[in-house]
Design a protein around this nucleic acid. Sequence first.
DNA 1: GCGCCCATGTAACTAGTTACATGATTCA
DNA 2: TGAATCATGTAACTAGTTACATGGGCGC
Lengths: 184, 184
Amino acid sequence: MTTKSKTRYALLGILSLYPMSGYDLKKFCDEAVSQFWNENYTHIYTVLKQLEKEGLAGKLTEQTGGRPPKNVYHITETGRAELNEWLLQPVEPDPPRFEIILKLVFSTDVPVQNIIEKIERYKAENELALENVKEGERKIKDIAGTQGEKWAYLWMIGINSGKHSYKAVIDWCEETLEILKGMK
Amino acid sequence: MTTKSKTRYALLGILSLYPMSGYDLKKFCDEAVSQFWNENYTHIYTVLKQLEKEGLAGKLTEQTGGRPPKNVYHITETGRAELNEWLLQPVEPDPPRFEIILKLVFSTDVPVQNIIEKIERYKAENELALENVKEGERKIKDIAGTQGEKWAYLWMIGINSGKHSYKAVIDWCEETLEILKGMK
DNA sequence: GCGCCCATGTAACTAGTTACATGATTCA
DNA sequence: TGAATCATGTAACTAGTTACATGGGCGC
């Protein structure tokens, strides 16, 4: 299978839940899936047009009065088929690109204090991300209630991944700070 | 500071260790830093030319007889200054894009067995990555010996980050497989 | 003799970002 | 009255990838 833009599938996936506009898709990305995915406006609008042209999504225009008319996109049968095909495929790992490590290994001449500050900042950012994940967890639990629906399980598993990852980074930061403080 | 290609800094960083050719840089990426960084040939050759034009790297051509002449690049004073400036800057977190989670949350209609297979594969890939990291760790220890040089500390810290991250993913896979197997 | 390694590069492309442009509505 | 939200888009760009092209050297 030739690799295509992941944005296509992200948008198709979201549209498979509810029909919505480009604007709404952006909101959904920023709110519901921001812990593991992101998109920007320009790209959303661009890809939506492609999806429409290829018949994977359809568009219904609502007049809003004043504002630009709202284009509500919905997934088509073809779109759903393409989404489902993608969903079945295994996930190829992305080649790693950890800027913080890259920077670290070239930092022989950088004052240790500066490195410490970077790691502390990095740690704080990851703590924040962990908090966001936990908030997401609470939201899902609220919505899903007690009857174990499959979608809620899947979202919880996704959320849990964030918890593991961010905790690992935070642990590493703490260990690293210990070592670096010993080097001063 | 305007954000620039990270490849620039990766190449400058490696050239700050040793002068080398585009081909060597690719090898260095694949061998020494592959656990946390990657580059591809085309981009390396392209960016090297830019660096040369901007005076951040210089080029010395060695005749090889037969083969294309080997262009050995070295970092200039200006290049070193730019690298050092970058090294001092804090690292902005990359917006997250975890394809496996994205796929997971839209997989309500995907057979659980297929999801299990994807996670198992993902786990295996991360186990392999963890092994590579551990091998890297051994190599560094061999090279660095016992006298605690700063560069060796920094590389070990970097390596350690990989250990934490991959372990976290593997743990998550195991937990997730348990849950999914309970859903069948 | 075959395949991998050395060693370079270009052309064409795709994915994604930044900056810009517009303008009504709603709420404090 | 001023900021945030709703709602769309284009132009220009940067970063990075894929596919292609070349060809000798070296080991098995």
